[in-house]
Amino acid sequence: MSDLEIDKIAKEWGLLILLSLLFSMKSYAYGVSAKLDFDFYNGYVQIEPMIPEVQKNGVMAGRQSCFGLCFGGIKSEPESRMTSEKNSYFFLSGNPDDLTFFVFNFTCRGPKLLVVSYAFHQFQVLKGQFIVEGTYASGPEVVSNVLNSLLPSLVERTPQKYLSTRTSHIHYFCSPEFRQQYQEFSIYDLARGFGPHFLVKYKKGVIHLAWDTSVWRDRQDQRISQTLEETRIKMAQYGLILPPVEDPFQRKPDPRFLHFFDDVSESQPQSGSLFPEEWGL
């Protein structure tokens, strides 16, 4: 066997291994797709969200260049569920060093929530990890647990009238109130972690995220700074004078952040539905 043939076989095996890894991901047929651009250093991420459509025969119709979950195990839903009313939502959480993108789909029958299917992509930048997960859950107990663990801040905001029993809050996700409030893509949690220095815009089907890197410090850096400052203040009470804490690394904001609104919002709504019109979301 020639070197060329060996090389060819090795490459094919490499591809096969990669593909088996991708296919072994525990996932469901909802995902975030391509047209990706990650720049966690300059604080700019582009991502094109997509929910591939699962046909009745179980074949997923999606775009090319699908990233991550779209390659996962594809499961078709029972036809009865396919005809039920569906609500899909997109959320972000975390902070610029630990971003999570969620795609949720709630299958409702009237005011009742029957099935939750979801996928999330988590980018743990400073741990070097990329977590992709997705599945579906049915049954009030299971659905309740899933929502409590993945969307705690939304569950906390459930109006009182949906809290009559331990699991009744799940039906809030099929209510007109919820739909009205979250039908467009929403950012929850993130604002609490990063506030006005984080911007999200939607343009031509692509989500653009940008954050001010002159302001953002990772969690550990924030904690070190806090420890130093507390020590300085506390020990000054005992007469021990320590030099003030200075930020050792001043940086200018990335121009893309400064011109974020100019670049992205022209002739576009500030936010809008992420999903095709025919989905009625």
Partner: peptide, 16 residues
Amino acid sequence: ARKSYSKLMNAYADVL
């Protein structure tokens, strides 16, 4: 680490 992670994610995206 941030630069390296971005490069890795972009490389994965390119593979797919």
